[in-house]
């Protein structure tokens, strides 16, 4: 097991290195650089632009820039944003926890909706309730996250006027302000995610209904509900955990659009801003952090298997 963990951790290094090369090359290949974008709209002053490019070493070859950046990363020096002219680290440390909070909140919503719905659908499979739940799931799977987000804003923010449409009180407001600011973003991302989990879990639960251990539990006198929750669900969760792990990774990147629609001050907005302004250091760091988080989530999901199913052992 320990050997497995070490190997997996060791694999993270080349993965991240490869990713950093791809990200660095891609953003430098896209036309436009931060200085040209900064001055281009209102007037291009070639001499000034060249002076500033020199200041930020943007006049140097790409490979040179890459190795300087790599050296900085190795010492955990995130450098400065070119466009903002300030250190990146504080920008990340304030925003990353918010994005994690949004992602975990969304997953909580997804699980809170999907587990009872899947159990209800499995218990009443092939009934109207099952078809209804499947229909709802299919609707949410087919619905783009941003559409659901906009609908939520219109219903809860504008017509009912019970939730805030901006999150400007989120950052410096009370705990209640934070919760209110999280409700709609978490619901939008969570409901869409819940649809896939519901369908997967329902299928597993239905498949297990006639398995020996469930029938044995029933013959022992366990009620339908007890057999479903304590015997069937525990086993169905193992297969579903893979999907939850993957969905969590996708949620991390999926919340970017949620952050933009809800003006949520997280990593997604920072990334969008970086891309729009071609702020290379910001793009590199945010993409790497997203990728690293994805890798870590997958790693944790793998490890969780052995916890959920003691038969699984990693060699």
């Amino acid at each position: 097991m320990i050997k497995y963990i070490i190997v997996r951790l060791a694999l993270v290094v080349p993965t991240v290195f490869l990713l950093s090369v791809i990200v660095f090359a891609t953003i430098h290949l896209v036309p436009g650089d931060p200085i040209t974008v900064m001055f281009g709209i209102e007037g291009y002053y070639p001499e000034e632009v060249e002076r500033i490019k020199k200041f930020y070493n943007l006049d140097k070859p790409i490979y040179w820039q890459y190795f300087v950046w790599l050296k900085q990363m190795a010492t955990l020096d995130f450098g400065n944003s070119i466009v903002r002219g300030e250190p990146i680290l504080p920008l990340i440390t304030t925003r990353f926890p918010r994005t994690i909070m949004l992602t975990l909140g969304s997953m909580l919503v997804a699980i809170a909706f999907s587990v009872p719905l899947a159990m209800m659908a499995a218990k009443r499979h092939n009934t109207v309730i099952d078809v209804f739940i499947s229909g709802i799931s299919l609707t949410f799977i087919s619905m783009p996250t941003f559409l659901l987000a906009v609908l939520m804003i219109m219903v809860f923010g504008v017509y009912l006027d019970i939730l805030p449409t901006t999150t400007h009180r989120f950052a410096s407001g009370s705990t209640w302000d934070v919760i209110k600011g999280l409700i709609m973003p978490c619901l939008s991302a969570g409901l869409v995610t819940s649809a896939g989990i519901t369908r997967m879990l329902r299928t597993e639960l239905v498949d297990n209904l006639h398995k020996d251990y469930v029938l044995f539990a029933r013959t022992k006198g366990a009620s339908d509900n007890r057999a479903l929750v304590f015997h069937n669900l525990r086993n169905a969760v193992i297969a579903t955990a893979t999907l939850v792990g993957l969905e969590l990774g996708y949620l991390m990147s999926g919340v970017i659009i949620i952050e933009i629609v809800f003006s949520y001050p997280g990593m997604g907005q920072l990334l969008l801003d970086g891309v729009t302004r071609r702020d290379y250091p910001i793009i590199q760091i945010t993409v790497l952090i997203f990728a690293l988080t994805f890798v870590v989530i997958n790693f944790i999901t793998d490890l969780l298997y052995s916890v959920l199913d003691p038969r699984i052992r990693y060699e």
Binding site: I153, G157, P164, Q269
Partner: peptide
């Protein structure tokens, strides 16, 4: 005087309509 940042135009409109902006 508070300036809020809303990159999505639809969200800006919703905020104006709800009175948040």
């Amino acid at each position: 005087l508070t300036f809020v940042y809303q990159p999505e135009y639809g969200a800006e409109i919703a905020s104006l309509r709800s009175g948040d902006v």
